[in-house]
Amino acid sequence: MIELPDYYKNKDKIDFRDATFGAVAEVMKNDTESVLLTNDMGALGIDKIAEFAPERVINVGITEQNMMSTAAGLAMTGRTVFVHGIISHIIFRSLEQIKLDLCVQRLPVIIIGVGTGLTYGQDGPTHHGLEDIGAIKCLPNMTILNPSDAYSADHAVKQAYKSQSPCYIRMDKALLPHLYDSNNNLSQNIFSHGETKGGSIITSGVTVWSALLAQSLLFKKNIHCNVIDILQIKPLNSSKLYSLVEHSEWIYIIEESAHNGGFSSDICYSLKNKSFKFFEIINFKDQYLLGSAQREWAWKKYKIDGESVADDIFLLNRG
């Protein structure tokens, strides 16, 4: 279980997949032309969609390349297509189909990948999602959404559908409380938690919970910071990001990715004209994690858990 700040510990926990496919169901009920393809990857939410649209939920088998090409063909006839599978398979096995069949032609295909970071950490590098952002973000026309709770997952699906262009939604399997609700405006695709003074911890996806824990621990040591949740990695809302760190003395980026597989380089690029007391990036370095990289264990080992992040920032602040 991902360690949560005290405030969230007793809140109800929601499955990302239920929220995501609940939103997909809403879309598919309204848009009777839309189709969902899976590579033999199931979810309770998919079964619910199949109950009202059995002909539009199609298990194509373990054929990721064909799934993307078929999605393109469907989309070219005016349909919005959702495509679902495990991140490490549907992104890397079919990367060329994503590039040529979906992105070059800017088709409304929404890839919903399950298994961000170390969601499947114990299943070895075949199932880790540590490099996918790096692989996908270089493709023009592609939007990357990385929700951090059920509410932002719902928002991501609806935003992707509205865009009518290629989108990649990264979906976790963790049970987590609501971080956002209808009182929060997520339209800028970036959200700041806490006061914009002191420093900024910038992160995306479920590591937001590490950042929030670190923030609460640092507060007790009189170190102040905001936590910036990048809900849309590409295109990055650089101007909003810049405004959120305008008064920040330091930047600390947490990414559950390999060194070049995440979003930190995009943050660096966006903030290249600004100087800080320190600018630190923590991730899994340029390597594969062999063996059973159980998420909480690996977060502690590579110091991207909340306590390690708080300790590191404390030391960096002391100089």
Partner: peptide, 18 residues
């Protein structure tokens, strides 16, 4: 559709036909 990298056309065609 864009072709030139081999092995894409039949899958896209399957999408059209579906």
């Amino acid at each position: 559709t864009c072709t030139g990298s081999l092995g894409h056309g039949l899958g896209v065609g399957a999408g059209f036909a579906l």
